[in-house]
């Protein structure tokens, strides 16, 4: 019977001890009293979606009224980890920085805190950045006041889901979707698409005989564009005639002369409608290059006639019926 009483006493004492330890780990302290200190907090912009390894920055700005000052030694040190009912929270302080600004009636302390998440779970769970305890003392006095700063609630998320999970139970409205930052990939994709588009355009340009539109690559189309750029003088006229000769050469696949017009038209019947103009062109060429006595009446300045003739040949080249009669 005596032994039984001892055992009960021991159990009661152990229960009291556990209760006492648990209570001492989560000391209930008064909130910030505005008579002595005011707090301004800058919390992380989001409160969910944190996974193991993520860091949270938090800034507390304490305005301590005179004659009190902050006891800096009361602030936690790097590596400190809150406990709740004897269990570590899994949120560790990884950086702390204090700035002090003393004024006549108050002192402003800017405390920058950095925490890192070291907890992982299979589902999203609530977590907390528990408010740190700050102690104030009155200068020249042993009076010390301590307050707990406001805490910050957030949620941690699992890196990935293993096994079967009942989403209905775990579908927390606070869980934000996991988003990957794909800005660089998007940029690379846009650049690659741009390069691909430019390459395709270049390929089309090359396959299209270096022209941007169909039929622009024809010999007479090119000659027409070139003639328009030549100067309006004797040399420009000679160059223009040479350009048309070169176009005829290109179309026929060989040199074409005045006595070869019939053969040219037999092999390229699309130009047959322009036969009189072709013959006049050779007369013009002969007059300019070989025999100035060659009789010729174009009815307009040679360069102008040549442009019209070249446009007519270009139309023939494109399979059109020439609209301009030179």
């Amino acid at each position: 019977m005596k032994a039984r009483n001892h055992l009960l006493s021991l159990l009661f004492a152990a229960t009291l001890l556990v209760t006492a330890i648990s209570s001492s780990a989560d000391v209930v302290l008064p909130s910030v009293d505005s008579r002595f200190v005011s707090v301004k907090e800058i919390n992380p912009s989001r409160d969910a979606g944190y996974v193991v390894g993520d860091k949270l920055q938090r800034t507390m700005i304490l305005t301590v009224k005179q004659p009190y000052i902050l006891i800096k030694e009361s602030l936690p040190i790097v590596g400190y980890e809150h406990r709740y009912r004897g269990q570590v929270s899994g949120i560790e302080l990884t950086g702390i920085d204090i700035e002090e600004q003393r004024e006549s009636k108050q002192s402003v302390y800017t405390i920058r805190l950095e925490y890192q998440v070291f907890k992982i779970g299979r589902v999203a769970k609530p977590a907390i950045l528990r408010g740190e305890i700050v102690k104030l003392r009155q200068q020249g006095s042993k009076d010390v006041k301590q307050f707990r700063m406001p805490s910050f609630n957030f949620r941690t998320s699992p890196l990935s889901v293993y096994g079967e999970v009942n989403l209905k139970n775990e579908l927390s409205p606070f869980v934000a979707p996991l988003k990957l930052h794909a800005d660089k990939e998007w940029l690379a994709l846009k650049i690659a698409a741009g390069v691909l588009a430019a390459s395709l355009l270049a390929l089309l340009y090359i396959l299209g005989a270096r022209t941007w539109l169909p039929y622009m690559g024809g010999a007479f189309a090119k000659a027409y564009r070139k003639i328009n750029k030549l100067p309006e003088d004797e040399q420009g006229l000679q160059q223009a005639i040479s350009t048309v000769h070169a176009a005829l050469h290109q179309v026929a696949g060989q040199s074409v002369f005045g006595n070869g017009v019939e053969h040219f038209l037999q092999t390229k019947p699309a130009f047959s409608v322009a036969k009189p103009e072709i013959e006049r062109f050779f007369a013009l060429s002969r007059q300019i290059f070989f025999d100035s006595h060659t009789p010729l009446d174009l009815g307009m300045p040679p360069k102008q006639w040549l442009k019209k003739f070249c446009r007519q040949m270009r139309d023939c080249e494109r399979g059109l019926r020439p609209e301009v009669h030179a």
């Binding site: 002369f257 002969r286 070989f290 006595h293």
Partner: peptide, 8 residues
Amino acid sequence: NRQAVVPE
């Protein structure tokens, strides 16, 4: 009946 030579 030409006064100058031509390619032809």
